[in-house]
Design a protein around this nucleic acid. Structure first.
Lengths: 235, 235
DNA sequence: TTTTTTAGAACGAGCGTTCGCTTTTTTATT
DNA sequence: AATAAAAAAGCGAACGCTCGTTCTAAAAAA
């Protein structure tokens, strides 16, 4: 159907989203919270803690996950875990902040230097889907636990949500001004596109059961959206 | 833009979704859980409990809401509350089951006797939006707390989610077979329509801030979807 | 008086967090 | 290369608190 997009595999390798890479970033950005000095040790155990936390939070929710659960699942003792975060809430903050930073980085990277609104729209949609495919538990957690964030983090979380949405809205707007897209409420369009992007990581079990790949979903979504918003000046 | 749909106001009055009506239904359907005999007393206090529970759950989540919070907010003592539900989990089940039953009733009612796929699609979309407008806290709670349901209720909840989706899929399918809708993946289309319906009650704060009414959202959604799926055999 | 409803103290369990200690790893010195 | 000193990391029992739930007695209604 369309080209000039990258496949999921190349996206994954280009964006450096491996577990280790991410834990390394968390380690470097949270020296206030993390008492461990040696990177090797920190990354290894952070990885175990985050795996366990994401698994437990995604199945029973953050506030129903006890630190004893987390200790059992991660294989670390209570005391040891407290060398990797200051408090339970602090752990949530770290996870959430990292997810946010990845989204900003990825969306920034795939759109830089792109001018054509249609191409830009495709890139954003695809990148968002791909990123949420790689980091599904991160995205899911951020979405479901927003309510439990402390005031500051809550605000940042809302801002990040609106940032993505505004990105979409601006693209739509510029596409409409150039006569490429039909005239319709850009704000609402941005909102519903966002909701379709979110469905991919919120209802992952459903798509998994239907053996749907992220590429398939991505292509469907692009076709669906384009056939609704594109002007008829092309085939 | 289009007619043969009802306005929000008439929907509200026709479907009998007042707080009292709903509490009465809950009282009648849960005689096992509710120890109170007199309907008047039960409805009055159920109403206070449900108001409080929905408020607290929607702001901090079900598992972060303590029964002492609930007691304070509802004005009832611990002991009194336990005459209206068997356990905290039981309370969640009651709320959730009632929401489910309303959706089934409403969607059944608005589609009965309707044959034309396009009209049926419009009706389902609109009814779902209207119902979630009236019962936003119910819908939000059901969506966010599915994970905390006990096994049986969890299954029923998933089934209800798929029921709505299958309703959409069947309508799309029949529309395609009659040559009214373009040929495209009906299952995926159903899924993304569902996600846009859900956005209305999940991101209510956003639409509220933008002063968007349910009628506006409904009309936008219908136009957006129709312009993507309708065949070109009309203006 | 009898029945229904409400009140709130009491109970055991489990929570997040802390802290003194042990074990492991690194560094320094021979 | 061996060893002692120092630093880093890990451990888990213990603490104070809050949780969901129960129970008995009081209040209200019939």
């Amino acid at each position: 159907m369309m080209s000039n997009e990258m496949g999921f595999a190349s996206f994954r390798s280009q964006m450096k989203l491996s577990k280790e890479e991410i834990c390394r970033e968390i380690f470097l950005h949270n020296s206030d919270s993390i008492k461990i000095r040696k990177e090797g040790v920190a990354v290894r155990n952070l990885s175990r803690i985050l795996d366990a936390a994401l698994k437990l939070c995604n199945s029973k929710g953050f506030s129903s996950m006890s630190l004893r659960d987390l200790s059992r699942e991660s294989g670390l003792s209570m005391g040891a875990m407290y060398s990797y975060f200051r408090s339970k809430e602090d752990l949530l903050r770290m996870i959430q902040a990292q997810g946010r930073s990845v989204v900003l980085r990825v969306l920034g990277r795939v759109t830089e230097g792109i001018d054509d609104p249609l191409l830009k729209l495709r890139r954003v949609i695809q990148a968002h889907l791909y990123a949420s495919e790689v980091l599904q538990p991160w995205f899911y957690l951020s979405y479901m636990e927003t309510r439990n964030f402390p005031r500051d983090e809550y605000k940042k979380s809302i801002e990040a949500e609106l940032f993505t949405e505004n990105m979409l809205i601006e693209i739509i707007d510029s596409g409409q001004k150039r006569g490429l897209f039909k005239s319709m409420d850009a704000v609402l369009l941005g909102a519903v596109i966002k909701s379709m992007l979110q469905d991919w990581y919120l209802k992952r079990w459903k798509y998994y059961k239907r053996k749907m790949s992220v590429e398939q979903y991505s292509e469907f979504l692009l076709n669906f959206i384009e056939s609704s918003i594109l002007c008829d000046t092309r085939v």
